[in-house]
Amino acid sequence: MTRIIDAMTRSFGREVPGLVGLLVLMIVGFSLASPQFLTGANFDSIASQLPELGLLTLAMLAPIIANGINLAVIAVANISGLTLAWVLNMYGGPDAGMLAFAAGVVLALAVGGLAGAAMGAIIAWFGAHPILASLAMMIFLKGIGEFLTRGGDISGFPEFVMGLGHGTVAGIPVPMLIFIGAAFLWHLLLARTRHGFAVSMIGSNPKASEYSGLHVKRSITLTYALSGVMCALAGIVMLTRFNSVRVGHGDALLLVTVLACFLGGVNPFGGFGRVAPVFLALVILQTLSSGLNLVGANQHLSTAVWGLFLIAVMVLRSGTPMLHALLANIRR
């Protein structure tokens, strides 16, 4: 048992064994409470809700490791979704072809990357506080969206778009596959590439990183640009799932993405954070949500439990050393 825990810790981070334990406990608990919990239908419902939140959380993760934050994740996702919708509508709406879709996806990703890069540049070159810069970008992008859509939604997409959002491959929903793929890429990016290395270093100490020859400003800009691309991917997935785009869709998820990152052990002071524990945290949040749903609670109660859950985890994490000190005192 200890060997398994050691192996998990080594390959995925210190947070993982605890989170896995929690997940197992939760699954056991909910299975006992509701016979529907361990069914394919429930798995499907988890797998179809997870990707949006998951992709957005990945987009939030990288800036937090760089000791920043991206409060514009939802806004970037929306504006990218709008870009795709706009391209589809230009090429005939419901009659648009695959090629139009592909072009729209590329354009949407580019718009997301551009919005992120602009935000990153303001942070890196002007030294603006990430909270303020991304907040301003959020307001601005939402503004553009509202201006272009007049507050309404855009719908009327080809059949295959819906198919993408609701289809399955080998029994796994397509959005879930996209999320797993994105998470894996993100893991590679953060844990294995030079850019990921730089992000961690810069997140801990940008000055020392610069003295060691890292291109700090470029890395920060790239971090937000890639975050923007990930937001765009989320926006595209949202479009395929709901078959419509509206500014403000998913706003409630903004702070949940931050919550998921912290739950996944990401250091709030930057420098440390891994995809695997955050992935687990997301699965836990979604399992909690669907489990509560099955025992008769609604989404709002889940939100409350998520918040309380984060408090409990943080208190435990910060309290553990204190508890040890206390116990040591008592023993003495």
């Binding site: 709002h300 939100t303 309380l308 984060l310």
Partner: peptide, 17 residues
């Protein structure tokens, strides 16, 4: 920021529930 995001979710969820 962590605590207030957590209390945001907790309070909002409880209120709506």
């Amino acid at each position: 920021i962590i605590i207030t995001i957590a209390t945001f979710n907790a309070l909002f969820g409880l209120l709506m529930f």
